[in-house]
Design a protein around this nucleic acid. Structure first.
Lengths: 229, 229
DNA sequence: GATTCAGTCAAACGATTGTTTGAAACATAC
DNA sequence: GTATGTTTCAAACAATCGTTTGACTGAATC
């Protein structure tokens, strides 16, 4: 194998995963064909079915490979915060930074996905494929559960329903922020902003979601007083 | 045929648009076949190509039908605010309510899309089809341009780059909030929140994005002192 | 050397894709 | 009535889809 001339840089299964990852992120599941994948990976068409069983299984494998390290790292990052706090509630700012640091860690590590990883995250939002819709909650369950309860302790004056909404909005903004500058181009024909650097995005993103999460409560109790400026 | 014996409730082209709208929103472009559309619309398979020319053209037609009223209404809503202000800067809260009111107006009008419309909005974010990617900026150009400059006047202390980021985050949260409770279910296996009522969503959504937009500036921009990133 | 077995390969599988066709059905005008 | 133009319909089109097949390769085991 190794030695004189490198016959193969990476094994077939990994090359398929790498090629499929890029194509799934770029075009989505349905618009990506087996032949596109195997052609980019420079492997035989039958290799996907041999190594993964089916296109569906490959799709799931692509996401599992990236999401497992993320959830582990993000939960671990929160663990350290809570241990240091010794039972005291955390700051929302610290909680959001904990998650963002975990994501950025992977975003700057090519071995764990690199820049393509953050775009994969946004894909978990939009793909309606049953295989993914069924497996994603398993991946996100512990992650979101931990971060939700940490945020709930940080914001005891916000009732649970409103907090659930805010977390939903926050993660929507977070996951979509990294989807690439396509979204900015969607709105502004000539955006000033360069969306390539995840760390730069996080600089603006964290204060935004923290402000949203820590805003005064809408629902205090009985009457939702809707007034307009 | 059905029930009372009315010959045809709506013409063929409209029935195709209605059926395609639901299916495109539910499954996306690639996962929706011509036969699924024509079967649901109860029209012949060839009717799509006859009335619209191609599947691509139908796709574009589905979005154009809904986005045109939205952008008109949203811009019109901002016009009224600015006329009443007589040149004074608007409140961010008022600006966001102006957009949200326009969206809600359509969301509660079955003739202009109803509940399916807000889910169509989120689709404009995720679909990577070239036909849509090319036509969307044309639709959103005036809308976003007007709201961006109104927000810029409301927040003169935020420099333009940071504001562009915040608007991007805000619209990400807004557009995704209406995508259905799928997103909530994605995170929480048993969400307390019922995501069916757009008006209820807006109640929590507007304060969130307003807080994010009006947060203290990360980067000081209004000063003559130029600092580079 | 014979056997075994994971892996690769070209070729083909049936099914489904978007689109086209030409005839039939329809409405309206002469 | 005939003529004209529009819309609908069943059938077929070539192309592509995900998957399967069976022969073949190369190295390890006996």
């Amino acid at each position: 194998m190794n030695g004189t001339g490198e016959i193969r840089q990476t094994d077939t299964a990994t090359r398929i995963l790498d090629a499929a990852e890029v194509l799934f992120v770029e075009h989505g599941f349905e618009a990506t064909s087996m032949r596109m994948i195997t052609q980019r990976a420079e492997v035989n068409l039958a290799a996907v079915n041999y190594h993964f069983g089916s296109k569906d299984a490959l799709f799931q494998g692509v996401f599992t490979r990236r999401l497992t390290p993320l959830t582990q790292l993000a939960v671990q990052s929160l663990d350290k915060l809570e241990q240091a706090a010794k039972g005291a509630p955390l700051l929302v700012d610290a909680i959001m930074h904990a998650f963002m640091d975990a994501a950025l860690d992977i975003a700057y590590d090519p071995k764990r996905g690199g820049v393509i990883f953050v775009r994969l995250l946004s894909r978990t939002f939009v793909e309606t494929h049953p295989v993914l819709r069924e497996s994603l909650p398993r991946h996100y369950e512990e992650l979101v559960g931990r971060y939700a309860s940490a945020t709930a302790r940080a914001l005891p004056h916000i009732d649970q329903i409103e907090l659930q909404w805010r977390l939903n909005f926050a993660f929507s903004a977070i996951f979509n922020a990294f989807a690439g500058n396509n979204i900015l181009r969607l709105f502004v024909s000539d955006p000033v902003v360069n969306a390539r650097d995840p760390r730069l995005i996080a600089t603006y993103l964290v204060p935004f979601v923290v402000a949203g999460l820590t805003a005064p409560a809408v629902k205090m109790g009985a009457s939702p007083d809707v007034n307009r400026a």
